[in-house]
Each structure stands twice: as C-alpha cells, then as structure tokens.
Design a protein around this nucleic acid. Structure first.
Lengths: 194, 194
DNA sequence: CCTAGATCGAACCGATCGGTACGAACTCGA
DNA sequence: TCGAGTTCGTACCGATCGGTTCGATCTAGG
C-alpha cells in the first residue's frame, strides 16, 4: 500500500499518507518488529521524508496510535449512534462491531494495548490510558441510559469484558468471542438495572 | 537478586537460579526491553553460562514463560482449593487473588499476554495459548460445579472478565479492579445458573 | 593431588538499529 | 523561467543487538 506520489507535493498530504500506510504495517509487525528502513521501503517513502514529518520513530508511533484511537472510538460511537435509543441495542452494536473486527484476517488485538505492552514509553502509555478513558466514557453513557444503579461500576465491568474479549480473541480463540461477550454484557446490564 | 555462587557447581541448580533471577527482570523490562548482556550483568551470571543452559535468548524466554505459567496456575488452583466446595467462594478466591496481585508494585499485567503482544514468535504464542487453556479449564471446573446451564460458555466469559480485569488494571486503573470484576463474575454466575 | 568440567570476564563478530547527510530530481508559485 | 522547498536514493554514522570464543579461575570426584 504505497504512498501515492503523483498528485502534488503537499506536506500535509504526504504526512497523512505516511500515517495511513504505516498504521497497518506497525499493527501487523509490532512497533519494534520492523525497522525504519524496512518500513520506509514498504510504504514507498524515503527516510528523510519520514523523519522530517515525524522527527523520530517514536513520534511516528505516537501519531499512528493517536489516529488509530480516534478512528476506533469514532467507529464505535457511530455504531452506537446508529443503534437507536435502546441501551440494549447500543450494547449489542458495540459487541457486534467487535465481532466483525475479530473476524478480519488482519485482526491482532487492541493496537493500543499491544503498544503499551511492547513499548515501555510514557507517551505510549498515556495514549493507551486516554483511549481506555474514552472507551469507558462511551460505555458509561450506555450504562447511564440503562438506568444502572451504579453506571460507573457497570461501565468499568463492561470495559473489562470488552477488552478481555478482544484480548482472548487475539491470543486464544476468536470464534464468537464478540457474541459470547455480548451475552455476558446483557447479563451484567440486567443485573445492574435499578 | 544475584545468583548465589558459593554453594556448589551444580548445573541444574545454576539453571534454576538463572530462571528465577531472570523472570522478574524480563517481566519488568519486557522481553525485548533488555539485552542479554545487561540481563546477565544484572543477575550476576556470564553470557557463556546462560547460553550453555538455554541455547538462545528465545530459549530462556520460553523457559521463563513456561515456569511462570506453571506458577500462576498453581497459585490460582491452590486459592480455589483452599476456598472450599462452594463455587461462589471458589470464584471469589480467584478474583481476590487477582486483586492482591494487582496491588503489588511490580504488577505489570499478565506476563504471557504481554509476551504474546511483544514477541511475534510461534513458540511464545503457543505458550500463551496453553496458559489460557489451563486458565479456561480452571474456570470451567467452577462453572460446572455451579451447575451452569452452559459451563463452557460461562467459563469463557469468566476468562474474558478475568484477563480483561488484569489488562485494565495494568494499563489503566488497578484500584479495586479485582473486586469489581468479582461482582461481575457473580452476576454472570447467577444468571447462568440452571 | 589431579583432572574434568562449570563458571567468569572480557574481547570479539557480523548484523541491525535509529538517525543524519547530501546530491539529484522534481513540483510549484512568482 | 527561476528559485524555494519537497522528495528520493544511497551512503554513512555510532550504538547496540544476539551470539561465540578463549584463557583464567574455581570446584568436585577419584
């Protein structure tokens, strides 16, 4: 998936293209599983260009993770928004979306959690924490609309369930992981209804 | 935590000592976060000795992970065994044990999941999968004794919850993560009772 | 006491790493 | 058309990586 070169010499566009091309490679190979030289060769960009736009490999990594977190959260939020006003349907939408993700051949678990486990750098851990913050916020909204007795507690439990499902799917068995997690989520939601 | 050198020149003992000394270092720093030279210096053993016993850095890593998985599963099994015959108490014992683990300063998440996320090597992934296999087996026993309608489904959901709690505790917020997961587990168990 | 083997410490190897430098080719706005 | 800026390709840098080698030192068993 090389960076298109013809169009124009537009630094912003180049930066965005590098970001888009590097994201799946770093996800598949791991942050430290590919060197800058091979990465540049793979996406069809010179090292100088990459370093001018991102300064450092860590700079690229952080930009990739930020963009990925944004994309994931938008994707989940859109799924919830499209599910109507019933909190149960909204919860279903989340786990159905996760199941579709698990079924993709390129699925390799939560990129932010993988990154935090790989790269012991504060900036990466911070991005991961913020990602989980937003994830928790999304689930808190659903828990609140479901009139849970303790929406924050339920949301935290749902976060554990969702990330646990993703982790188990990535490293153990992905078949129906989203569906099984969805059923567990329903049970939690029913038990927490006030 | 250096390897004791006085006692005897006993290869097996040396091997075990290296294993014990290297385990916490690799857990804290990450598998690729420390080189063999620094690792050897830290545990007070020469590179030649390490390579004679483990052949390869990957060999050491695999031995460390195997031992760790054994230790974790024995620790959880013992906690369950000590909890009596009530499945609810057994489940409590698991999540209470996890909470105590989360409260340790050196806690950094599930070593096997971290390793699988870091090291894209088949052997490591296999060890992780086998660890989750045993984890699932433990939970299946509890689910069966609780007369769950579908013990395998419940056990899988409990596995997601437990590993999700560990992951969230490691990368986001460890306070009361085990306790909150325990309450969720109880809700699942109640809902699954036949 | 002597030898086989375990260990150490340090030097060493080739490969790869992240990052820099530079000249040539190119695009664009003036 | 010209000059400023972007990109490319490649060579290069010092550091570090996993792994090997070797002589010196030490220990245990006969």
């Amino acid at each position: 998936m090389p960076v298109p070169k013809g169009s124009t010499i537009d630094p912003e566009r180049t930066r965005a293209a590098i970001l888009a091309a590097a994201t799946p490679v770093l996800y598949e190979r791991g942050l430290d599983g590919i060197g800058v030289a091979e990465l540049c060769a793979g996406i069809g960009v010179s090292k100088e260009t990459l370093y001018r736009h991102f300064g450092t490999k860590d700079g690229l990594v952080e930009a990739v993770l930020e963009a990925r977190s944004d994309r994931v959260m938008r994707w989940l939020s859109d799924a919830v928004a499209a599910a109507g006003s019933d909190p149960r349907d909204q919860l279903s939408a989340v786990f159905d979306a996760l199941q579709h993700w698990y079924d993709e051949p390129a699925f390799r678990g939560c990129a932010m959690l993988n990154a935090a486990a790989q790269h012991h750098v504060d900036a990466v851990r911070a991005i991961t924490a913020r990602h989980l913050d937003r994830y928790l916020e999304l689930l808190t909204g659903i828990a609140s609309r479901a009139n849970a007795a303790d929406p924050h507690l339920l949301a935290r439990q749902l976060l554990m369930l969702a990330e646990g499902a993703t982790t188990v799917a990535a490293h153990y068995d992905r078949s129906n992981a989203g569906e099984h997690a969805r059923r567990a989520a329903f049970a939690l939601l029913s038990a927490a209804a006030s």
